[in-house]
């Protein structure tokens, strides 16, 4: 029983951290730009496909692919923000959603044209392809790696936002766009930079998914983006701290649900979301973001 408990815990942690990697970029973009970016799942997908392509061209060096792949996606993110999103900031949220959703469809089809409509089984990572024996049962090393990467990304983001000059400007622009602009911050350029950075986070999530999910398919961003949205809502839209906590809770909840309450595992996350929305409509840390 203990071994099962520990393993379900680990499975939940790795799932949660994996969702966090995707939710972090989504949350950052919402917190600063105020845009709910549906296309974030597409950046995740593109990240995965670019990493995979580089992987097969670069002699199977996963790490090199993980560094270079997301850079290509950043370029895509730049174009999306600079030439499209920028023109809808001032109009209603539904239009932003429509635009970003249009990109989801476009990118799905582009992936089909370039890489084919079929699913591609992806290789495992040299060095992390094995498993570790924990309490007599094997646990994939790569999942452990994901469990470590999640908090590192959180720490990095916290450091960036709280401890650096750039972070101060980002926080300033996110709490009062006009004031920041009046004080000489080039808000449009800052928005582009934040969007591209958020895109990069999504694409890195996608790159890390290559061995984690073990599969590339067009439309692969759609399932993860729903989890990421739930996490972002529970945590309080725009709050990174909230998203991290939300991802941990959702990961563990779904893992324990699958193991111990299998009939309700699909409901659990949404029930949690409903409860949180009733009890605290702004999410765990919503106030901070709305400050």
């Amino acid at each position: 029983m203990l071994e099962s408990f520990v393993h379900v815990c680990l499975a939940g942690l790795s799932k949660g951290m994996f969702i966090w990697l995707v939710a972090s970029g989504l949350t950052l973009i919402f917190g600063v730009l105020g845009v709910l970016n549906f296309a974030h799942g597409s950046f995740y997908m593109l990240g995965a496909y670019f990493c995979f392509s580089l992987l097969s061209h670069l002699g199977h060096n996963f790490w090199l692919g993980l560094i270079l792949g997301p850079l290509f996606v950043c370029l895509v993110g730049y174009v999306v923000e600079r030439y499209f999103l920028r023109y809808v900031y001032h109009i209603d949220l539904p239009y932003q959603l429509l635009l970003t959703f249009a990109f989801v469809l476009i990118f799905d089809d582009l992936v089909k044209v370039v890489w084919g409509a079929g699913s591609i089984g992806s290789p495992s990572v040299a060095g992390l392809s094995g498993s570790v024996r924990i309490l007599g049962r094997l646990f994939p090393s790569y999942s452990l790696f994901i469990i470590l990467v999640g908090p590192l990304v959180a720490l990095g983001l916290w450091g960036l936002l709280e401890k650096t000059w750039a972070g101060r400007i980002i926080r300033a622009a996110s709490s009062d766009r006009e004031m920041a602009s009046a004080l000489g911050v080039r808000v449009p350029a800052l928005f582009t930079a934040v969007f591209v950075f958020g895109t990069w986070l999504g694409a890195v999530g996608g790159g890390l998914a290559v061995p984690y999910v073990g599969l590339l398919t067009p439309g692969m961003g759609e399932s993860i983006i729903i989890d990421a949205f739930v996490v972002a809502v529970i945590g309080g839209l725009g709050s990174l701290k909230g998203a991290f906590l939300g991802a941990l809770i959702i990961g563990l909840l779904s893992s324990f649900g699958t193991r111990f309450l299998p009939t309700f595992d699909m409901f659990l996350t949404f029930i949690l979301m409903a409860i949180v929305l009733l009890w605290r409509p702004q999410g765990f840390f919503g106030e901070e973001a709305a400050r």
């Binding site: 379900v8 499975a11 939940g12 799932k15 049962r137 599969l215 779904s254 893992s255 699958t258």
Partner: peptide, 11 residues
């Protein structure tokens, strides 16, 4: 996409 909890149930 994540079957790890299911696999644990079976094991």
């Amino acid at each position: 996409t994540d079957f790890r909890a299911h696999i644990n149930t079976i094991l």
